[in-house]
Simulated scan of single mutants.
Amino acid sequence: MDVSDAELTVEVTGPVATVTIHNPARRNAMTAAMWRQLPELLDHLEPDPDVRALVLTGAGDAFCAGADLGDLAELLDAGDTSIAVAAEERLASFAKPTVASIRGACVGGGAQLAVACDLRIAADDARFGVPPARLGLVYPAPTTRRLSRLVGPSAAKHLLFTAELIDAQRALRIGLVDEVLPGDRLVARVDDLTATIAQRSPLSVAAAKEIIDDRAGPARIAWWHRKVATTGEPREGVAAVTERRQPRFAWRPTDG
């Protein structure tokens, strides 16, 4: 493999940033360099006031086939402090909504990244798997807990105990993905979804994400309610509904 072909690329179109996993020789498997690169990209994108949502996807016909096995020893030695877990945690803590756009293989480290996103939209050819039991490995504890919260303990155990691949429809039934569409409609649906999110109040969305992810204690929740009272966002929202126009929400997470 030419390691120069393995990279994460970023494209910002309007209010949406798209991070693409690109490693064609390995079905977009994540190399050590790519795991290290992801938090850096997110650190750059998060404070950008023009970015309102982020899409994570894979190049070509796969999302991500996992961690590149050539880097497996480094990941195993680090356990739950590995660069893969650090990348996953940074993605999960990204302050703005994140959407995984999934086609083809979404396995191992790919599932790890997809589960760390807020929403997952899949093409009907997507396949999902969590293979540590096939390899004699222990899936990272933060990843295991996040998967269990998403699909429930029983479905998480089935995925982890069997290491079987499941199709997109089963992933939809257990809550691993939010929508399944024909492959030729995936990009348009993700574009529509992120455009809708970008039109909503960033204050409302940011508060909801923190609260749902259990990262907002009583003091932080009170802080959010004070922002509602002082930023004028509700006045703008009501005015937009009354005037039958798109709202012009002015608050951004960088405003504090």
Rank of each mutant, 00 (worst) to 15 (best):
G217N: 13
D5H: 10
C106L: 11
V151F: 01
A206W: 06
G256F: 12
A100K: 11
A168K: 06
R103F: 00
S4P: 00
H225W: 09
A188K: 14
G14H: 10
A122I: 01
A100R: 12
L113H: 05
A171F: 09
A219N: 10
I121D: 00
V3L: 08
E7Y: 07
R103P: 00
A155L: 03
P153G: 11
G79S: 07
A216H: 01
L72K: 09
L72W: 11
L45Q: 08
A198W: 05
A65P: 00
L172P: 01
A59V: 01
H225K: 12
T9D: 02
A92Q: 14
D48F: 01
M1D: 09
E7H: 13
P253H: 05
L137S: 04
V177D: 01
H158E: 15
F161L: 14
E243A: 15
V187E: 15
L76R: 13
L150Y: 00
G237L: 07
I166R: 08
T231N: 04
G58D: 03
A67L: 15
E46Y: 01
L160K: 05
A53E: 09
L45P: 07
L72C: 03
I166N: 09
G183C: 10
R27V: 03
R173F: 04
T230R: 08
A133K: 11
P142Q: 08
L150D: 04
E210R: 11
D77H: 11
D48K: 11
A6L: 00
